[in-house]
Design a protein around this nucleic acid. Structure first.
Lengths: 105, 105
DNA sequence: GCAATAAGTCAGAAAAAGATGACTACTCAA
DNA sequence: TTGAGTAGTCATCTTTTTCTGACTTATTGC
């Protein structure tokens, strides 16, 4: 029985890949805060009510890997790290705003 | 200590709500197949390699509730059920296509 | 009535994601 | 050299999602 209507394994799904960039409990919130200003790890932990180091650290890492955030070491007195939205990140967020509009209707 | 830089509970995140509509392992694939033609339960199960009834049934239900798919009883000889993309579903998917473009770069 | 097809539901098991608290590494200032 | 601030990691536990296989309901052909 080798007819062609077997399980067709659609080898990849671009929509799934796209959504994966935003997957997880904290990424949408993190991106939202990133629109307003650069982020810092400990500040973020306090702003995201109910979050934890492990998850926030993982989310930041993945967002940087996805190219949505850029990590920078800021050489000021207490030397800290900043996460800023990349251009790509900004572009994607603006498309999301459109989508949110479509849903409101 | 009631300063205003406590944990600000950003009470809601529209992006999170949007993403929730597509959350889960099978929804992106289901929507993708829905673009091509109306869907039927058992066919879908065979097309989605590795899927299971429980998850596919849940995904279809949630997509209908979200207004992205429309469920119809088709009164033909073996009487079956079809799931078609709604206008809202089509609109959202076309926006996703734009996003996928942004990511390719 | 009896079996087949279609579209599911349900309870329990397994896997994945998230949370917790202790610990690490680096810099700087006293 | 010690202590405070910043940014994490790690092992373990808990919660949530997903999977599996048996069971259910409705319609139809024989």
């Amino acid at each position: 029985m080798t007819t062609q209507n077997e399980k067709i394994n659609l080898e990849r799904c671009p929509t799934e890949e796209l959504l994966k960039l935003f997957s997880g409990k904290w990424k949408p919130w993190i991106l939202r805060l990133a629109v307003e200003s650069p982020l810092r790890f400990n500040t973020l932990l306090h702003q995201l009510h109910g979050s934890n180091k492990q998850s926030v650290a993982a989310a930041l890492k993945e967002l940087v890997e996805a190219g949505l955030l850029v990590k920078t070491v800021v050489k000021l007195k207490p030397l800290h790290i900043e996460y800023c939205l990349s251009e790509k990140g900004r572009a994607i967020i603006s498309v999301f705003k459109d989508l949110e509009g479509l849903l409101g209707e």
